[in-house]
């Protein structure tokens, strides 16, 4: 019984962590290239809606995946154009993008509400009852870690994030790297949205992401821009959420809000205990060729 309780808790934590992992990976790629990805919440939301629209209108999950990737690419191009090519303040544009995305997705959802207010078909689990999204997230974490720390292109990406001018002097096209990084980051964040709507709750509602993009941001900072540590942070946040609901069923008779506040206190403690994390040297700084 105890064993099944723990297994159940772990699976619930992984379910809750899966969308966060995709987003955290997206943030990692962008910030390792020196671009703050504050707009991750908005991209996630766009991906979440695109997944449901694609699945419902296309009639199968593959159409949903294609729509998600397309939404991620479009969002990435918009963000990259404004924050890298122009360039503009990355924090401000990220916040603005989140607000625009909330408005646009709610508007589109309203237009298609009659078709979209359904449960899309469930994607069959692959292993241990885990969705393909969860397994893909774990594989991607390892791949990202290997890419960032063991490959040449990964080194180039990191060097752009650490010192743009030094990277430029060594022959790296900084604008190109940042542009590409932001598109990849946005596709990953959009997949995080799809993991939430298509792979977990099978439907969409206004603002369905509810700040999960920002939690992923906290996970990356806690994980000191390292994919493996970010994974552990996502799992801690997921476990906190899973524990909150299980706490209600302990029979202790405490007010449910007592348990529901636990994940937030846990987040505060974890981030507080993590101490000052030093990010990539040039993260957030617009690149202007000297």
């Amino acid at each position: 019984m105890i064993e099944s309780w723990w297994v159940d808790l772990l699976l619930a934590a992984l379910r809750a962590a899966t969308p966060l992992i995709f987003c955290a990976l997206g943030i990692l790629v962008a910030e390792r290239a020196g671009v703050l990805h504050i707009g991750v919440e908005g991209v996630m939301l766009a991906g979440a809606l695109a997944a449901i629209i694609g699945t419902v209108l296309g009639g199968n999950p593959w159409a949903g995946m294609l729509a998600t990737i397309a939404a991620g690419i479009i969002a990435g191009i918009i963000l990259a154009f404004i924050s890298v090519s122009l360039p503009t303040n990355q924090v401000v544009i990220g916040i603005a993008f989140n607000l625009v995305s909330l408005g646009v997705t709610s508007f589109l959802f309203r237009l298609l509400a009659k078709q979209l207010q359904v449960l899309v078909p469930a994607i069959p689990p692959l292993l241990f009852g885990l969705s393909p999204f969860a397994l893909a997230a774990i594989v991607l974490i390892v791949v990202m870690w290997w890419f960032l720390f063991w490959t040449g292109p990964g080194l180039k990406l990191r060097s752009v994030g650490e010192n743009t001018h030094a990277a430029h002097a060594s022959g790296i096209n900084v604008v190109y790297v940042r542009f590409a990084a932001l598109i990849i980051a946005s596709v990953l964040a959009a997949l995080g949205g799809a993991a939430l709507t298509m792979g977990w709750v099978r439907s969409f509602t206004d603002n369905v992401t509810l700040g999960r993009g920002f939690i992923a941001l906290a996970a990356v900072y806690f994980g000191r821009w390292n994919p493996l540590l970010a994974l552990s942070a996502c799992l801690i946040f997921g476990a906190g959420e899973a524990l909150a609901f299980r706490g209600q069923g302990t029979g202790a008779g405490l007010n449910p809000h007592y348990y529901l506040m636990l994940p937030y206190i846990l987040t505060l403690l974890v981030v507080g205990l993590a101490g000052m994390a030093r990010g990539p040297g040039d993260a957030g700084k617009p690149y202007l060729r000297r």
């Binding site: 379910r15 939430l196 977990w200 709750v201 509602t205 609901f245 809000h257």
Partner: peptide, 15 residues
């Protein structure tokens, strides 16, 4: 059981 909000699909599902 109480979810603690009216909107979070994922929390409602897990509860």
């Amino acid at each position: 059981s109480w979810v603690g909000d009216w909107v979070d699909l994922a929390k409602h599902r897990e509860v």
